[in-house]
Computed example of a mutant assay.
Amino acid sequence: MHWYVDVIKNYVGFSGRATRTEFWMFVLVNFFIAIFVELIDKFILNGLRVFSTLYNLAVLIPALAVGARRLHDIGKTGWWQLIGIIPVLGWIVLIVYFCTDTQDKENSYGANPKESLQE
């Protein structure tokens, strides 16, 4: 859960790097929270989608930020997220990038985050 909270705390941090674990744990926790909020909307508010819309707007910037940091970790610019606009093919490219391992050395976006975790 701390991965999710760390991303939310760094909600406008588009610089730096994020490990695969940080990114995917955020995605996982975000997915379950989104389902829970959607169920609240469906059963309590009769499908008005008030809470789910507010939640999705609240996590939009942090999700874009952690995505950009994840792409920085593999040496790509955060603007590569725009390829997700292309249906299916763009999504596949992004998933491959998000699953790619960290660059072992320091890159133009900062030091290897795995090294700081091991110390």
Rank of each mutant, 00 (worst) to 15 (best):
P62D: 06
I61N: 01
G16T: 06
V59G: 12
G78Q: 05
D6I: 11
A34N: 03
N30R: 02
S116T: 14
F43L: 00
N56T: 13
F26V: 13
V7R: 03
L28D: 14
N46W: 10
W79T: 03
I74D: 03
L82G: 01
I74A: 01
T21G: 06
V50W: 15
G16H: 10
V5T: 13
N10K: 14
A34T: 05
V96W: 09
G47H: 07
S15K: 14
D6G: 09
R20Y: 09
K114C: 15
S108H: 12
F43C: 10
V12S: 15
E38Q: 14
V66E: 00
P62S: 03
A58N: 09
M1P: 04
S108R: 14
L48W: 14
E115F: 11
F43E: 14
Y55C: 04
L64N: 09
L89N: 02
I95H: 07
G16L: 10
P113E: 11
G13Q: 15
R70N: 02
R20V: 08
R69K: 02
V7D: 11
T53N: 13
G90C: 00
K105Y: 15
G47L: 09
V12N: 15
K105I: 06
L94D: 01
W24H: 06
V29M: 14
E119Q: 11
T77W: 09
R20P: 08
A58S: 09
L60P: 02
N30Y: 07
I8D: 04
I95M: 07
D101T: 10
F32K: 04
Y11E: 10
M25V: 04
T102K: 08
S15A: 08
V50D: 03
Y11S: 10
V88W: 00
V37W: 00
I74H: 05
E106G: 11
W91R: 08
F43Y: 14
G16N: 12
V59W: 02
T100R: 15
E22V: 03
K9C: 15
A111Q: 15
I83N: 01
E119G: 13
V27S: 12
W24C: 06
P62M: 05
S52M: 09
G110A: 13
V59C: 02
Y55D: 04
L48M: 14
I83D: 01
E38S: 15
D73R: 06
L94H: 00
G16W: 07
Y4C: 08
V66A: 00
T100G: 10
I95E: 04
P87N: 06
T53V: 04
T77I: 10
N10F: 11
D6S: 15
W24T: 09
F32V: 12
V59P: 08
N46I: 12
V37H: 07
G67W: 09
S52R: 04
V50H: 11
H2F: 15
L64D: 01
R70H: 05
I33W: 07
V12R: 12
L48A: 15
L57E: 04
I92Q: 07
I86L: 13
M25G: 07
R17D: 02
F14P: 08
R20F: 12
G67T: 02
R20S: 05
T102W: 10
L89A: 11
F23P: 02
I86V: 11
N46P: 00
A68C: 09
I92E: 13
